[in-house]
Design a protein around this nucleic acid. Structure first.
Lengths: 254, 254
DNA sequence: AACTTTGGTTCAAAATTGTGAAACGAAGGC
DNA sequence: GCCTTCGTTTCACAATTTTGAACCAAAGTT
């Protein structure tokens, strides 16, 4: 399952390289993109004007930006899953009661994407937002998903994306991760103790279909100061389990 | 300002035609897409496998779907504007107090896209969601924006997109629209009395930068039965004005 | 169990297009 | 008024995309 296109369309690749450059540069002109990607200006100009014509890019003055039209595609991808609609009300409830940050993550191509997040009154401000992609091995959410994926799939993912260290506490060893995932499977809950963001703790539970396939994972996260051992290991997990049960039931009958 | 690319990249156009086909067909195989677009199967296959390799499309079994990765691009486009972050808390407040549906729309390429919406407890269920694109002339939100765009820009937009009728009450005449927009400018509020969705009424106010450029529009909508004349024309407008004032102030100082 | 259908994948030749250097033009800074 | 920067245009050629036919694999039918 190494998805290598036999006859790849080079222009399609270039198109997305240019769009990604626009994201990275947070809007840019023809020359800036050309320099960034080491392509001829005239060529980049052709791509950008085509993208603008197609309404996927906007030109303000002389700089180009990624268009909100992508929200249409992104929202379609998100709404395609029942998960989003069904999980949202449960998540809102938890955020309201606990005051912390509640997250929903799904996996695609071996990486995680936040598809919904809701902040309670006391919630921390963190870097991630809807649409952010993360490595699976360094978040509680990701580990909850990995733990319920077939083992060969997990190997594939590690081979493809590696186990880069994000903080000092990130798991970077293949065997250590394997053991951790076994614990997660047994306990039904995954933890993240400052493995992705310093000072941030997090517990997550997987959400599975009635056939046993993981659809995503749900988490609650907050500052280490407030999320002490008992709350992290008892209170929050039971909340998560209750919520994921409801979600799983509702997904089965929808 | 007719954005016609001089040397368009045909492959870029094809790439997006295929992605749009995937949306329309709600996931499809190679043959289905090829038939839909009248392209050779082998060609479509090349595009889809390239898109999958780039992680913008997912293959489940033998059908392809638009990938959640587009949410990354879409969210970037949304977060680029301060508007989204600043309007959200105000909108949440209104939804909570009024119990109706609150919407935020922005314009790009002459069309509107919902970038946030929040439903109060009694809110109606409507077709639109975040990411949905609509014609500007048939919603209160769109008219609020059109009214504050330079006149030549409005002409351009009408020429480009026309004034298609969506319900019996949609404005389809150029001059009638012009008059309506003058009223909106004077009153500061735009209305929609079942012009886009039967049984749905709506009032909207524009949100402008301190330089006078429209950034978007805010609306409250509900069923005709509940949104009677006085509420539509007095109560809701004053709520909207209060909220847009706060938003405009916060945008200026951020 | 053989046959048919359906749909995905591969291949190589033919047709078109993307590429890239250079020149041009417009805008802004010095 | 000159110089710099950056976007836009042009054009010839190399390179890519496009095609249809052939090939497979899986599912459905007789």
């Amino acid at each position: 399952m190494s998805p290598t296109a036999r006859n790849p369309i080079k222009s399609t690749r270039t198109t997305f390289r240019i769009l990604e450059a626009l994201v990275e540069l947070d809007g840019a002109g023809v020359t800036a993109v050309a320099d960034h990607l080491d392509l001829p200006k005239s060529n980049v100009h052709n791509y950008l004007s085509t993208l603008e014509e197609a309404e996927y890019v906007v030109k303000r003055g002389t700089t180009f930006h990624v268009g909100i039209r992508f929200l249409e595609l992104g929202a379609h991808a998100r709404n395609r899953r029942d998960l989003y609609d069904i999980a949202r009300p449960e998540m809102d409830k938890i955020a309201d009661e606990e005051g912390e940050l509640v997250n929903l993550l799904v996996e695609e191509h071996g990486r995680g994407t936040y598809i919904y997040r809701v902040a309670g009154d006391d919630a921390v401000q963190v870097d991630a937002h809807v649409g952010t992609r993360v490595h699976l091995h360094c978040t509680a959410l990701g580990k909850a998903i990995l733990a319920h994926l077939p083992e060969e799939r997990v190997d594939e993912i590690i081979t493809r994306h590696g186990l880069p260290a994000v903080t000092d506490d990130t798991i970077t060893d293949r065997d250590e991760l394997r053991e951790t995932l076994a614990d997660v499977r047994e306990r039904g809950i995954a933890f993240d103790r400052e493995e992705r963001v310093e000072g941030l703790r997090c517990a997550a539970a997987p959400i599975c279909s009635n056939t046993g396939r993981v659809l995503g994972a749900l988490s609650i996260s907050g500052p280490t100061t407030r999320i002490q051992d008992e709350r992290l290991e008892e209170e929050i997990p039971s909340l998560l389990e209750r919520a994921t049960n409801v979600i799983e039931l509702n997904i089965t009958y929808s």
